[in-house]
């Protein structure tokens, strides 16, 4: 049984890593090398694809959309955590009457198909004059990620041993102190995972960004889609573009991984 799990896991790890490896490798090839069949694995490497993506010949810089994506993702992730942690704390540690109903309300807001929500939300943005405004995306991503963040944080906080909270309470710690000094360190892997998840979802969101933004507030996926549409036949360029857009998530992931690993091995309850 254990061995089977191991084999399946390693097999899928390799299988699932292959497309990424292929993408990065192709992005470093020249266009003629990228287009050969069979793929030329040993061909010389070049940064041409990246230069093209950063506007060597089109003159279109990807920096404004990348910065927009950073603002929207980081902004919404911070707001989500600020709203979700107290809410999850209330739901997991302090028992709320009928909390399942509250949880279900959070969850049900995720069930609206994005496509179906487009038109009403577009109308709201138009009505409030927030079209092509990055703040609107921040608010939107916050509401999109809040339900899952609350659910996740609740499960993570449920793992905090009650004895510690009692001890904190006996020592006279208030809510903010308890959250900051006692709960946060223990739930750190959970907070890191939640933050990572929110960041990735906001970073990769395409449909809303495409409909609600224009020249000013366009995000990286919107730029990338335009790039794929116009340069789709140039494999190396497309792969370079996809690699650049994926890079921030990889970095965020490594930052969070560290926190995930720190974990609870500190041994809070003795």
């Amino acid at each position: 049984m254990r061995r089977l799990v191991g084999v399946v896991a390693w097999f899928s790890a390799i299988l699932f890593f292959a497309p990424v490896a292929w993408m990065v490798l192709t992005s470093l090839h020249s266009e003629p090398d990228a287009a050969t069949n069979p793929p030329s694995l040993g061909a010389g490497l070049t940064l041409q694809g990246y230069e093209e993506f950063f506007g060597a010949s089109t003159g279109q810089s990807p920096w404004p959309p990348l910065i927009n994506s950073f603002s929207a993702s980081i902004g919404s992730t911070i707001i989500v955590l600020l709203l979700a942690i107290p809410a999850a704390y209330a739901l997991s540690i302090k028992k709320v009457e009928k909390w399942t109903d509250v949880m279900f309300f959070f969850l049900s807001t995720k069930m609206l198909p994005v496509v179906a929500g487009l038109l009403p939300i577009y109308l709201v943005a138009q009505f409030t004059g927030m079209l092509d405004n990055i703040s609107f995306l921040v608010i939107l991503y916050t509401s999109m990620n809040l339900p899952i963040a609350v659910w996740l944080m609740r499960s993570f906080l449920a793992e905090v041993p009650p004895e510690i909270l009692e001890a904190a309470s006996i020592d006279g710690a208030g809510l903010i102190t308890t959250l900051r000094r006692v709960v946060a360190p223990i739930a750190m892997p959970g907070i890191a995972a939640t933050a990572l998840i929110c960041f990735i979802f906001s970073w990769n969101e395409l449909l809303f960004a495409r409909v609600l933004t224009g020249v000013v507030a366009g995000t990286a996926p919107v730029f990338l889609t335009g790039f794929v549409t116009s340069q789709g036949l140039f494999l190396a360029k497309v792969c370079a573009a996809a690699t650049v857009v994926s890079l921030p998530v990889l970095i965020a992931g490594f930052a969070a991984q560290d926190k995930l690993v720190q974990g609870l091995s500190l041994g809070a309850v003795k």
Partner: peptide
């Protein structure tokens, strides 16, 4: 670290790019 790299790489690739790359990989002739 390798496992996380693989997972994050898959996760980080925006859906449009990911789908396009899979199409390239599974292309009938190339």
């Amino acid at each position: 670290t390798l496992l996380f790299l693989a997972a994050l790489g898959a996760w980080a690739t925006p859906a449009v790019a990911g789908s396009t790359i899979w199409l390239f990989l599974f292309d009938a002739n190339f």
